[in-house]
Design a protein around this nucleic acid. Structure first.
Lengths: 248, 248
DNA sequence: CGTACTATTGAGCGACCTCAATTGGCGTGG
DNA sequence: CCACGCCAATTGAGGTCGCTCAATAGTACG
């Protein structure tokens, strides 16, 4: 949808988008992403480091648990999910990523990815060789700071999720999750009240520590209570104020 | 216990330990902590950056949610816990920290601490001014790498906890937690089978997303099953093999 | 030796899960 | 264009794990 230029949906790639060179300085997401706060000269250096852009189709993986760390990924369009899994197949989704967000930094300690990263829909990502990026961060103070900030942010987000799953009731979890989506969509210049759920109910459940049926029932109940209206993947928050206050 | 020199338990500090200067190069935890992999010259520079050592008593806080980020803390002895809380008082413990581990890195994004850090028993920490450390990391490649590694490790640990709380049953959670304690104690050169629980049952419950009564009941059940023996804060794992296999 | 806190154990209940049937949306092929 | 099949989502019934409330036992410390 957001990538109208890709018309052929199942055959081999018709046009080799994969080799298009990225250019942070022209990217609309610059201030949300890794380059935030860098000056023109530094931006050029970063651009030379970023390898290329790449299209990932729905269901395709950027990496899997155990893969050696080679690239970080910055999302340009689309949506991804990261998940860990237990030996017997139980899944915990650890995050959903939107444009401007970075994937892969969990793997720096241990040099291997600790989770799977899968596209929820057709997406475009920038590939960033980790070794080069670390070298560059050594030379550019602002980039080191930005990297540390990104990682710290990830820690904060996981802490939030921990609090949600560990101490919130099912309805609080889903509400907090929707509120979070609303805020992140706003950051991207989209509506705070009209949310697109890029993931399935199953994914939402696996993220919030709930069964998919519980998620579905909650949507119905919220609708009865007049908090929102649902139509498939689209949720309209009719009462953002109430939602905010109900979260304390 | 580990700090026999501190005899006066509730009055004002008799001896001013607080101003003792740290010395990474002489520290037995060097290879577990921030200085890992640094050479002698770099170690000297780091030593000049580390502010001082400090004693924290049981129940004392290193920082609280909302405090501005000024110092990171490296634990030399004792044990700490970090926790987040909801408006209405509900608590989620996000981690327990042992000697050689670093506290405070959650605050880099946003410049304010996102959790409370409280001593579980009398402990000794090294204070590290964050601003100086970041500057130093800009000059010392190994230190930048070490910082990034530490943060990535924190992300990994939180991810593990997420998986535990989100997708494991109560008994699996406690077992996984004990197994983790066993591994970390081993790293410190202590026994893999004789574990000291530095925290209360309440804290354990708040960490694992369980009621304290559930934790207590599980200990009793594990004892009946012959997996371990409990005496207050001391747990002896009689069957580390079985525990490991039961975790898949 | 008493006080206060922490841990254990029991009984009953409720939130959320599991299993199962039904409905709805969408692409594919006749 | 409609029928069919497939998958996702909804809804219902019943079960269970872990919580809450409450009483008792154990432990630390003055």
């Amino acid at each position: 949808m957001s990538d109208a230029s890709i018309s052929n949906k199942r055959g081999a790639a018709v046009i080799s988008f994969a080799s298009i060179k990225a250019a942070c300085k022209d990217c609309s997401l610059r201030e949300l992403c890794l380059p935030r706060g860098l000056d023109d000269r530094e931006l050029m250096a970063l651009d030379q480091t970023v390898k290329r852009r790449r299209i990932v189709r729905k269901g395709e993986h950027l990496y899997r648990m155990g893969d050696p760390l080679q690239l970080l990924y910055a999302i340009r369009s689309g949506a991804m999910k990261t998940s860990e899994l237990l030996g017997d197949g139980r899944i915990q989704v650890t995050g959903f990523q939107l444009p401007g967000e970075i994937l892969g930094i969990d793997a720096i300690d241990g040099d291997r990815h600790r989770c799977n990263a899968e596209a929820l829909e057709i997406s475009e990502v920038c590939e960033i060789p980790w070794v080069k990026l670390e070298e560059l961060a050594q030379r550019i103070g602002g980039l080191q700071h930005q990297l540390l900030r990104l990682m710290s942010g990830e820690i904060g987000r996981e802490g939030q999720l921990l609090l949600m799953i560990g101490k919130m009731s099912a309805d609080e979890r889903l509400l907090a999750c929707l509120y979070n989506f609303s805020q992140r969509q706003t950051r991207l210049g989209l509506s705070p009240t009209d949310i697109k759920l890029h993931m399935s109910r199953q994914d939402l459940g696996d993220y919030l520590g709930l069964a998919l049926e519980t998620v579905s029932r909650l949507f119905s109940r919220f609708q009865e209570e007049g908090l929102l209206t649902v139509r498939g993947k689209y949720v309209h928050l009719t009462n953002l104020e109430t939602i905010h206050t109900r979260l304390g």
